[in-house]
C-alpha cells in the first residue's frame, strides 16, 4: 500500500491509500480517520474543519485562515499507521423494494441499454441485481447516498460519458462495480435501472442517513402498482423521528 498526499487547493488535502474498492484500503482509511479525530479532540490539529472518508482515501478539510498545509501535514503523516487488520464491521441488514425498468421511464430508463451492453436480457439484469447482497462502503455525493458493492461482475459497466442534468430521487443505479440509490434529485452519471420508494435521508432522524457504512442491503423487485403504494406509505417516514426500520431483515446489530 503506497500512501500519497494529494493537493486539493488551499482548503483540503487527500491522503490516498490506493485505487479501487478494497476492504484493506477501507480499514486503513477508517483507522486514520479515527486517529485524526483523536488528535482534533486533543487540540493537536487546530484549524481542521472535518474529514471525509471514502473507499480509498481520507480528505482532510481545513480553514486556511486558521492553519496551513505546512502546519498540519506533518501531524497527519505521522498518524498514518501500518495497515490495520482489515475488518469491516457488519451492520444492519436491509431489504429494500425496487421497481425495475418499468415502461414509465421514471423507473429505470437505462435498464434495456445496460442489459444490451452486458449481453443480457433486462430480466436477467433484474435477477442478478436483486439477488445479490451489497455492503454499504461509504456515503457521499449526495446526503445519504450509499455507495454499495459489489455488483455481479457481469453487470459492471463504466459511467455514462455525458452525465444527466437531472436524475430523479429514488433512482436505483449502477456504475463500475457499484450500485446506489439517489436519495434526492441530482445531476448524475450512473445507469438508472430502477426506482426505490424508500427515503434515505431526513434531518429528523437520529443519524440523518438511513443506510450507514457497514450495513448490508438486498433488493426485492416489486411491480409498479406496489411501488406507487409504497411511495405513499413511506412518505410519512421523511418527517417521522425514526427511519422506516420495518425494512430491516433482522433487528440485530443495534447501532
Amino acid at each position: 500500500m503506497s500512501v500519497r498526499i494529494l493537493d486539493c487547493g488551499d482548503t483540503a488535502l487527500t491522503v490516498e491509500f490506493g485505487d479501487g474498492v478494497d476492504r484493506r484500503l477501507l480499514a486503513a482509511v477508517a483507522a486514520l480517520d479515527q486517529a485524526l479525530a483523536g488528535l482534533v479532540a486533543r487540540g493537536e490539529l487546530c484549524g481542521v474543519v472535518e474529514t471525509v472518508p471514502t473507499f480509498r482515501s481520507l480528505t482532510v478539510i481545513y480553514d486556511p485562515l486558521r492553519t496551513t498545509r505546512g502546519e498540519i501535514e506533518p501531524t497527519i503523516r505521522a498518524a498514518i499507521g501500518p495497515p490495520a487488520a482489515a475488518s469491516v464491521a457488519h451492520g444492519r441488514r436491509w431489504q429494500l423494494p425496487v421497481c425495475y425498468g418499468d415502461q414509465s421511464a421514471a423507473c429505470g430508463p437505462d435498464l434495456d441499454d445496460l442489459a444490451a451492453a452486458c449481453g443480457l436480457t433486462p430480466a436477467e439484469v433484474v435477477g442478478l441485481h436483486s439477488k445479490a447482497t451489497y455492503d454499504v462502503y461509504m456515503l457521499g455525493f449526495l446526503p445519504g447516498f450509499p455507495f454499495m458493492g459489489d455488483l455481479p461482475a457481469v453487470l459492471s459497466r463504466p459511467r455514462r460519458s455525458e452525465p444527466r442534468l437531472r436524475v430523479p430521487a429514488g433512482s436505483v443505479a449502477t456504475a463500475g462495480t457499484l450500485t446506489a440509490i439517489y436519495p434526492s434529485a441530482s445531476p448524475g452519471g450512473w445507469h438508472l435501472i430502477g426506482a426505490c420508494p424508500v427515503p434515505l435521508f431526513s434531518a429528523t432522524w437520529p443519524q440523518a442517513a438511513l443506510l450507514l457504512p457497514g450495513d448490508r442491503v438486498s433488493f426485492r423487485a416489486v411491480e409498479h402498482a406496489e411501488y406507487r403504494a409504497l411511495l405513499g406509505e413511506l412518505a410519512a417516514a421523511r418527517t417521522s423521528p425514526r427511519p422506516p426500520e420495518w425494512l430491516l431483515l433482522d433487528g440485530a446489530a443495534e447501532r
Binding site: 480528505t59 461509504m138 463504466p158
Partner: peptide
C-alpha cells in the same frame, strides 16, 4: 481512463 474510484470533492474541485 475517464473515471476514478470515487473520492471526496471540495468546493472548487
Amino acid at each position: 481512463g475517464v473515471e476514478i474510484t470515487s473520492d471526496a470533492t471540495v468546493p472548487g474541485s
